[in-house]
Design a protein around this nucleic acid. Structure first.
Lengths: 198, 198
DNA sequence: CATCTTACAAGTTACAGATTTTGTAAATTG
DNA sequence: CAATTTACAAAATCTGTAACTTGTAAGATG
């Protein structure tokens, strides 16, 4: 019988919640698993029964944040407008979410940047997910598209300069509208290109 | 009369040369203006008569390196092939130069990265120069292109994910061919798009 | 009198020892 | 016996201090 009176899953959930909160308040670099454990009222060693280490806790926090973002993006996919407009919306929305996160919770965003730098599995999983979404929208936007997966990778490559977490940070003090206009420009030119080639 | 027996310009040239060499050997972060001065046989304060500070020396080193790169790229512009091929060549060449620099002189490349991070004037000047070259080649590749400057900015935006100094570093252990193929893909799709819109 | 040196304040880095933190294993508890 | 704790080694971080660097100013020199 667990002395915390919590099911393992519940404890994990709470640990992630506490870690998330602490990153926001004390900062990413000062997150200590000792403190998280203390706040949960257990010894730090107890957490090692549920997480393989600090990295896995961080991954869970970042994963949770990515899941939230994923959820918000779903709306753009099934929203109104032509497929091309929806793809544009989706890409713009993704960029805005990152910028907002970087402004509102810089420390949490830093955790995401670090996870990206280290190519953590959480981030790779979401990148693949995003590529699938782009492929789907592209297929709708360009009916006779030959290789959606290839085209999606192409679009993602061209968008990397707008979407890379660190570059988003770099542009944070640039007018959002200017960046979004450029993104749209690149996207529409690419789509025109893909249409003319198909 | 200068007690070094050197004209100001000559001393500046030598200082940059020494700084360049020292970055390569002892590393960017360990470059001391004291050491540069010592190697030139003058007191460190003497350099402050010629440079406004350490940053300006670094800028001169990076500027010199960028000028070399610029020189090497000129060949691609006036090389053989269709304008589209020349543009492709030029972009690929630019990427390769960076990758080679990052591999061969990592510390010097780090200086360049830092200069980019801090948006030093040297780097901005060269970015504008590059954009002009792209605009020129685009004009040749797409005869009835309406707004070459705008198109060049578009291409540069889409290429940013390939060309940003830090991202080049990030991809350093990825197969060059794979990245170059993606770059070509993006470029040709953009050109196809620009053609179909014009 | 332009060029350089010495002298100096303010800031930065280097380093060594103390303290914390991380992660593991053996012991404990319900 | 699963969940947790205590105990502990290894790694990372903090702290205080000495040495070094940067940049400035006042003075020296050809």
């Amino acid at each position: 019988m667990p002395r915390t009176g919590l099911a393992p899953e519940e404890l994990k959930r709470r640990a992630v919640e506490v870690a998330n909160q602490r990153i926001k308040t004390v900062g990413y670099s000062k997150l200590r698993v000792t403190d998280v454990a203390a706040e949960l009222g257990v010894s730090h060693a107890a957490l090692y029964a549920h997480f393989s280490g600090k990295a896995e806790i961080l991954d869970a926090v970042v994963g949770h944040w990515l899941d939230m973002a994923q959820e918000e993006l779903r709306a753009a996919v099934s929203g109104p407008g032509t497929p091309e407009q929806r793809l544009e919306n989706w890409l713009i929305q993704r960029l805005r979410l990152k910028r907002q996160a970087a402004l509102k919770d810089p420390e949490l965003y830093e955790a995401y940047c670090q996870a990206t730098d280290r190519l953590r599995e959480v981030v790779l999983r979401h990148k693949a997910l995003w590529r699938d979404q782009i492929a789907m929208l592209l297929t709708q936007a360009i009916p006779d598209l030959k290789d959606p997966a290839h085209a999606a990778r192409l679009v993602q490559s061209a968008m990397y300069g707008f979407n890379h977490p660190r570059l988003v940070l770099e542009y944070l003090d640039t007018e959002a509208e200017m960046i979004e206009d450029r993104l749209r420009d690149v996207l529409h030119t690419l789509i025109a290109g893909l249409r003319s080639i198909s």
